[in-house]
Computed example of a mutant assay.
Amino acid sequence: MDKLKFELNKIKNDINSFSKELIRIKSFTGYEKDAAELVKQKMIKLGYDKVKIDDYGNVLGIIGNGKTKVLYDAHLDIVEAKDEKEWDFPPFSGEIYNGILHGRGSVDTKSSVVSMIYAGYLIKKLNLCPDKTIYISTSIMEEDFDGELLYRVLKENNLYDLKYVVIGEPSDLKIGLGHRGRAMYKIITNGISAHGSAPEKGDNAIYKMVKILERIENKQKEFDKIEGEKGSIVVSDIKARTASLNAVPDMCTIYIDRRLALGETKEKINKEMESFIEGIDATYELYEAKGKSYTGKDVILNVFLPAWEILENDYLTRTASKTYKELFNKETTLFKLPFATNGFATNGEFKIPTIVFGPGNLKLAHMKNEKCSLEDIYKTISFYAFLAKNY
């Protein structure tokens, strides 16, 4: 541990400089190329055994060639900062002031990216894991395609036999043991168009949607009465098709964001959707998110992502807790995250033991004045490296 602290102290200036450089890149979802190239070159400079960018644009750095395989992943893409003028420091300045890194992505999740890259360096430098292969993944497009691009990393590299995965997301240096799932649905009502001066000749699709909206609102009221882990539902968008502003709309579409509790299945949620449209001329369908990676590859995600968790008595959880106490001389906090992560890819179909751990306050994600303590980044580097050693 003393050797790690010594080596970490030697590279803190380099960590700070790289963090600033990464924050300055506007790597919005689908536009991560410059950030990916920067990460690739940094991994090469730090002596990674192999570094590659796949067809979609994900970066994968590899250290070692042992039988035991583990993976660390954090995403490179960020959300926009449309309120730039209201920030204390410009969101793409990468300003460091009083030991705090400021800027969009400093929490979600470029500080985790930095921590993983330098943890990999220290693992190799100190020969901490001679019997392991360490994969450091900096994936893309997470903000709009939860887990889909990491899923492709796993498939393209045949990483089905990983012993564990750490997802880098802001966790306040607590250990995340899972999170709720997420599903997106569309409900569509159809009507008959008519001139606005003669609405009786038409059939207004918006009016048909009113009862559906009431049923959805009542469903959320049911959730509000439940204690503990539970689902939630919100209508996140509404659109109407109309010939003009003086015509009866012949189609209305709503988009539903349905958060899933552990064990909620597609069959169950489909029945819920059927109850919303019962007795109404309406249809529903699972939302299909479509996009294009910065390399030009099409990305499609059917948005039904079940909740997942890892148990407190799992070997990974126990090893992570032990590592935390060894490093910081105190007990850790175990919790479930309120938002979605790339953990869908690893603890979903592949059932790979997965935890979430990263620097930064999760409440600052996507917020004005996003910022992260450099000290938290240093601590996270140590945790990532020693977890790999201890497992």
Rank of each mutant, 00 (worst) to 15 (best):
D2N: 07
L4E: 00
L4V: 00
K10E: 12
K10P: 08
D14Q: 10
N16R: 13
S17Y: 11
F18V: 04
K20L: 10
I23V: 07
G30Q: 05
G30I: 10
E32T: 04
E32V: 00
D34C: 05
A35E: 01
E37T: 00
D49I: 01
N58T: 00
V59Y: 01
V59L: 02
I62K: 02
G66A: 05
K69L: 07
V70H: 01
L71W: 09
V79G: 00
E80C: 09
A81F: 06
A81N: 06
D83V: 14
D88T: 03
F92K: 03
F92Y: 15
G99T: 01
L101T: 01
G103M: 04
G103Y: 02
K110E: 00
S111C: 10
Y121Q: 03
L126S: 02
L126W: 01
P130C: 10
D131A: 02
Y135V: 04
F145P: 00
E148H: 11
R152C: 09
V153N: 07
K155M: 15
K155D: 13
E156Q: 14
N157P: 12
L159Y: 11
L162E: 08
D172W: 10
D172V: 11
M184W: 14
Y185F: 15
K186S: 12
K186G: 05
I187K: 07
A194P: 03
H195G: 08
P199E: 09
M209N: 09
M209C: 13
K211Q: 14
E217Q: 13
K221R: 15
E222D: 14
F223A: 04
D224S: 15
K225C: 10
G231N: 04
S232I: 11
I238N: 02
S244T: 12
S244I: 11
V248C: 04
M251V: 09
C252M: 10
Y255S: 03
R259N: 01
R259T: 04
L262N: 00
E264D: 06
E264Q: 09
M273W: 08
S275F: 12
F276Q: 05
D281W: 11
A282Y: 09
A282H: 08
L286R: 12
G291Q: 06
T295H: 12
T295W: 08
G296K: 14
K297T: 06
D298R: 14
L301H: 02
N302H: 14
W308N: 00
D314R: 11
K322W: 12
K325H: 10
N329G: 07
T332E: 05
T332S: 13
L337I: 03
P338T: 11
A340M: 14
N342C: 09
G343T: 05
G348E: 08
E349D: 11
E349R: 15
I355K: 00
I355C: 00
V356K: 02
F357E: 03
P359C: 11
N361R: 06
H366D: 01
I377D: 07
K379S: 12
F386D: 05
